[in-house]
Design a protein around this nucleic acid. Structure first.
Lengths: 253, 253
DNA sequence: ATGTCTTTGTGAACGCGTGCACAAAGATGG
DNA sequence: CCATCTTTGTGCACGCGTTCACAAAGACAT
């Protein structure tokens, strides 16, 4: 069974570690803000603070791109913006389709961050015939029957799935068959795709559940913390945050 | 994808690795589906396939929770659902507030995944007075002035930020000051929070940019597929990179 | 009861990512 | 031109996470 699906290509893309790639957009955002304030150069320390990372990590990240800094001075903001944009492929315009124009799909279509840099909403697609023709975010919704034609006509290679869970896999299959090779999935399902297709998942309930785990842990520690030699926490000493009774059973060892 | 700002506490939460915690919701979802189909037991191999992970990884993940399987048989679905739910803290109900009821906030409020398991939308909050009182997803929007009171009255410890980028940090500060210790941030900003507060980030444009990077790489490889002169070139700089007209005008300065 | 067969649970090896600490590089001033 | 000071770029070590491979555990048949 080929389990090497959906995730890590294992092949470090052009020598740039995946973890670094994931941080480049963060740096780019911070740099863009600096650029708008006409800041000419920035040190690794300053930029790292703005991006919320370690400065050594930032320097190492940039070292994978090349030596774009000047010792004793720092990095040229404009130049770095260009280099990172180029590396991320944002100097070209990526047409994107959004499939599933419900609450979330509509919100995504209206999201400014899309069109802002490098991405253009090429089409909105929904399976509901009643939606067809209705404009959302200024773009008329097209029926799912047109999916293949839209993909091919616009040369779309990135698709966003915002359908209900049940429709996600079939939609994904059709997107891939039509030529899409990158998918951003908002549906709460594990998508199966052939090799060579990248899938990234954005899952609200998973994020919430992870937060709940830590929240529960904090509550548990707090309740069981008497003689902790912990450094003084700047916590506002909350009385009790027990939501609604029901204290969870004590943790087993 | 540990977005725990500042520093990851390094303290492996109760011995359960962060990476494992991030996968538990995935397992839980797969198990719930099996439960609804009244499947009594499942092997690590089957469950791993359903969750899209390696079976060895799944077994190791479960081993951190305890020995809940039966050798030669597999795992009892119902029992495992309960154990994971308990571990994630989903046996209690977490009141959640959503701040910023724009397109995205409204979509989140309508999202079924919220109320489904363990989470309850306690309040919708927006800074626009015109929104106050207007029902969204059956819940009347409340004005931001009420934020602190809402948090305290409902014992809210998890907040969702869906405001514009500029408002995110101030809102975050107020949430934290009022007692929130876990934040799910949809605004494209790096949030700064005191120790003890967990932040997870969901950033659409970052995800898209990561996809664009891989997409560009695929296109580049494809274009250079005929050239076998890539033997000893560790630093294949410049030359071939743009599938289309290369080096377009730099971004607006 | 005994043997066989299935599947778990885990010890160990490996690889990736992170952070430290420092030498090299270049700017700046005398 | 030389000395000093700042900041980059990176070698190295460490720890986390993943994967392999296998022994232990239990079910099931005879």
């Amino acid at each position: 069974m080929a389990t090497g699906r959906t995730h890590r290509p294992a092949t470090r893309s052009r020598g740039i570690p995946e973890a670094t790639v994931a941080r480049l957009p963060l740096y780019l955002r911070a740099l863009t803000a600096l650029s708008e304030r006409s800041v000419p150069t920035v040190s690794s320390e300053e930029l790292a603070a703005a991006a919320g990372v370690n400065s050594a990590k930032l320097r190492k990240d940039f070292s994978y791109l090349g030596s774009y800094g000047t010792r004793g001075v720092g990095y040229d903001v404009e130049y770095l913006v260009y280099q990172i944009s180029r590396e991320l492929g944002l100097t070209q315009d990526w047409p994107v389709v959004i499939v599933g124009i419900g609450n979330l799909g509509a919100a995504l279509a209206n999201y400014g961050g899309f069109a802002s840099r490098g991405f253009r909403v090429a089409a909105l697609i929904d399976a509901d015939p009643a939606m067809a023709g209705k404009p959302v975010a200024g773009i008329p919704v097209q029926h799912a029957d047109e999916l293949e034609k839209i993909i091919e006509d616009n040369g779309v290679s990135i698709g966003v799935i915002a359908t209900p869970a049940g429709a996600a896999q079939p939609v994904c299959d059709r997107l891939v068959a039509a030529g899409v090779t990158s998918i951003l999935n908002f549906a709460p399902t594990v998508l199966t795709v052939p090799d060579g297709v990248d899938v990234r998942k954005v899952d609200l309930s998973i994020e919430l559940q992870i937060l709940a785990f830590h929240e529960q842990r904090k509550a548990g520690e707090e309740a069981a913390a008497e003689g902790a030699a912990q450094a003084a926490g700047p916590r506002s000493e909350t009385a009790d945050k027990g939501p609604d009774g029901d204290v969870p059973a004590v943790m087993p060892a």
